[in-house]
């Protein structure tokens, strides 16, 4: 264990797809055992940023440190070891449709950690209970669930192995406001009870206010503002102000045709 206060550090990370520049010198620090929320407009590269940290997308340049180790220099084994620390909720849920719901939730325990199926199922059902899904849902296939239910299954899967670091890519979109708040509480308890470091992406400001210790805003592939959750409302940054109040007028121009 390093005594670096930051669990993850991204330094000057660049990534482009063809001509399209997505990450343009992104620098971000994720403090150990805290909850960081990244806000920002659609298509600004938030999901790409998470995938770069996980090694699912290889950045063109820059440095990504996980517990002080440069992940760009990992070999296959080191990467596998590092990935064991992570849980990830994908924006599109990414449930395995050939497996039952409970097998999805238990997947990391059974395949990744060689836990016996029976034991893993008990844990899976317990985690599903925490996201408001009863044991009868466990026997269904993911395609039989609603979008919001799928999201909650994916959430249960991400936290099932109680990882050190959890990424939540839009955990509350598609949920009703009450269930969204249940999920917010769950994310908070991951940090407070398990001591996990979480990095969440959201457009939902009420969710961000509730779960964040720190907030950072991404715009055009860069972090343009970061601070504590309390500072968000008087950030003195016109971009942040426009975003958190959801105004169409401001420095952020949406590329839409006006009628």
């Amino acid at each position: 264990m390093s005594d670096d206060p930051n669990k993850i550090v991204l330094r000057d990370v660049h990534k482009r797809f063809g001509k399209k520049v997505v990450l343009d010198g992104l620098t971000l620090e994720v403090p150990r055992g805290k909850s960081l929320v990244v806000i920002g407009g659609s298509g600004t590269g938030k999901s790409v940023m998470l995938k770069c940290v996980l090694g699912l997308i290889r950045p063109d340049s820059g440095e990504i440190l996980i517990d002080g180790q440069d992940s760009m220099k990992f070999n296959a084994d080191q990467r596998e070891q590092a990935l064991r620390k992570f849980g990830m909720l994908f924006q599109g849920s990414a449930l395995f449709d050939s497996l039952k719901v409970w097998e999805n939730v238990a997947f990391g325990l059974i395949q990744g950690r060689n836990m016996p199926r029976k034991e893993a199922k008990d844990i899976a059902l317990d985690k599903m209970g925490q996201v408001g899904l009863g044991p009868e849902v466990g026997e269904l296939s993911p395609s039989e669930l609603s979008g919001g239910m799928q999201k909650r299954v994916a959430l249960a899967r991400a936290i099932a192995a109680e990882p050190e670091i959890i990424f939540f890519d839009e955990p509350t979109t598609g949920l009703d406001p009450i269930m969204a708040d249940v999920i917010n509480d769950l994310i908070k308890s991951c940090v407070q009870k398990l001591g996990a470091t979480t990095l969440s992406i959201t457009h939902d400001m009420s969710s961000a206010r509730k779960i964040a210790d720190y907030v950072a805003m991404i715009y055009k592939g860069k972090i343009i503002w970061h601070g504590t959750a309390a500072q968000v409302d008087n950030s003195g940054n016109a971009y942040v102000d426009q975003f958190i109040h959801g105004r169409a007028e401001g420095p952020i121009k949406m590329e839409v045709l006006k009628p």
């Binding site: 994908f90 990414a94 997947f107 990391g108 395949q111 990744g112």
Partner: peptide
């Protein structure tokens, strides 16, 4: 079709994050 669908719906990425090598699995 099966593996392709898993690719475009990010299920292969999900395998990787659950400590399972997609090649092996």
């Amino acid at each position: 079709a099966e593996i392709g669908t898993m690719r475009v719906t990010e299920q292969i990425d999900a395998l990787t994050t659950l400590s399972t090598n997609p090649f092996k699995y």
